[in-house]
């Protein structure tokens, strides 16, 4: 499996080199929207020093961590997910069904998106700077990293579930944008939302927890929610796997 992944990564890189301009532009736009987030954050905090106990630096830590999770997902999986959507919709999965490899992981890892690696590295550097200012304890730093990894898995599972829905519903490609919207909306302090929304997105679909938990570890506010999001993420991964297998059963290629 590892050898196959290495080949896939090499191929992604080769493809990226074919479209160098696209790569540069995509990286630039990633940075552009991050900068817009920063400016908007700056505007908010120009009127008040803290919001629900979060100061500007905490807030920066939150949105940067959220971006870190998004970009890591994008680097590792987004190109594969886009490809998978196309393959399902055009009924082109037949070949993958005929290979002696696990098709779920093969498609999930089919391509990495090198343009996002640029933004991922940039965001990581910024986050590292922010963390040195926030001084998390070594243990909290470790939990911070763990929470980020769980976050990436969470975003992956959500997207995988949405993409696989294409087996049943066609013409709803906009569905694939939902996890991204959800994660964008979650890149804010949980407390700004009304109670019901908070509970819903901390516990049921814990997208707010996914962004808030690592940020809290970052400024030394540890939370048990980390356990919960790990559990939910595990369940979502299993769910996406079952959905994939059901989807294959449903799959009747267009002939």
């Amino acid at each position: 499996m590892f050898k196959i992944y290495r080949v896939l990564i090499t191929q992604s890189l080769a493809e990226t080199m074919t479209y160098r301009v696209t790569t540069i532009l995509t990286a630039l736009f990633g940075v552009l929207f991050y900068v817009i987030d920063l400016i908007t954050g700056g505007v908010y905090f120009s009127f008040t020093p803290t919001i629900y106990g979060w100061n500007f630096l905490d807030y920066l830590n939150l949105i940067t961590t959220a971006n870190l999770i998004s970009y890591a997902y994008q680097f590792l999986f987004v190109a594969a997910h886009e490809d998978l959507t196309d393959q399902i919709l055009s009924g082109n999965l037949d070949y993958s069904l005929l290979r002696p490899v696990n098709a779920y992981w093969f498609h999930a890892c089919y391509r990495v998106d090198f343009p996002s690696l640029v933004t991922l590295i940039l965001t990581s550097i910024i986050e590292a700077v922010i963390l040195t200012r926030l001084h998390p304890t070594p243990l909290n730093l470790l939990f911070y990293l763990m929470a980020v990894i769980v976050g990436i898995a969470f975003v992956f599972a959500l997207n995988q579930i949405m993409v696989t829905l294409a087996f049943w519903v066609d013409g709803l490609t906009a569905l694939n944008g939902i996890p991204e919207d959800l994660m964008t909306a979650s890149a804010r302090p949980a407390k700004i939302y009304p109670r019901v929304i908070q509970q819903l997105f901390l516990w049921v679909i814990p997208s707010l927890a996914i962004t808030n938990v690592p940020a809290q570890f970052g400024h030394n506010h540890p939370t048990w929610l980390l356990l919960w999001i790990t559990l939910v993420t595990g369940l979502l991964l299993i769910l996406s796997y079952i959905e994939w297998q059901r989807g294959l059963l449903k799959y009747v290629s267009a002939n």
Partner: peptide
């Protein structure tokens, strides 16, 4: 490239 991938698979 595709063939190399198939070689591994």
């Amino acid at each position: 490239d595709t063939l190399v991938l198939l070689r591994e698979i």
